[in-house]
Amino acid sequence: MNIYRRELRAHYKVLIVWMIWMVFLIISGMYKFQALSANDANGLLKVFPKSLQVIFGISGFNLSTMIGAFGILFLYIILTATIHATMLGAEIISKEERDRTSEFLFPKPVSRNLVVTQKLLAAVTNVVVLNLVTLVTSILTVAAFAKDFSNNGMVIVLCSALLFMQLLFLSIGAVFAGILKNSKVSASIATAILLGTYVMWVVIDLNKNLEFMKYLTPFKYFDASVIIHDGHLDVFYVSLSVILTIVLIITTYLAFNKRDLKV
């Protein structure tokens, strides 16, 4: 597990920055929504055009409840965590080629599969730590702003949805780094897919005729307004995201094994 330990050490500073940003986002976001909820926020937001409500992720939430406010904030939490996961997935696989350390690492008695495994484990550890920090901060912040709030279960459900999203986008980043030699291109494509699927989610919400495209965007799999309404995750979408994640990870191994390394 030497590569795993090395990757954890190499990424901990960046992880701390992401954790600080996440904590700041949750506290400042909840503070703002608390102020809104005190002034008939639902009425206030209804004057917004539907398109703006969708783009800012405020469509379908009841802002007079604390979990409704958290649901709106959750979109930004998802965007932050998935950007982190996507970039991490792409970077951790391709960094040896980017930094030209391939000729140090790969002549060592270690298979490419083992390198990928240890790097992905380190990435998953980073992602899980960010998720736990998000969960704990969310529970504490929501509790601090709503003394009588007792729906920690829903925060946990939402954070578990977040974890599925993080793992899926981590594997999207990894698969492009596995396939492509150029680390800049792989990171750019993976990030473009993240933003593209987000835009797709907005467009589908605005135009019900495009509902058939909902399987193409993971943002639709874990729509916070639907989860809060249903009270649980949709088993079909969880299964779909797990299957996609597994397929992408297997593809990462196959592609990385098959191609020449950039040296």
């Binding site: 930094d99 000729e103 140090f104 008695p109 298979s111 040296v263």
Partner: peptide
């Protein structure tokens, strides 16, 4: 991997990880 257990390799250009002392890199190696 089995073969490389007994191979030592020195490339023409050497690149290593940032922020590591020589001893740490060699221990990692």
């Amino acid at each position: 991997p089995e073969i490389k257990e007994e191979i030592g390799y020195l490339p023409s250009e050497v690149f290593y990880y940032d922020n590591m002392k020589a001893i740490d890199l060699l221990r990692y190696s």
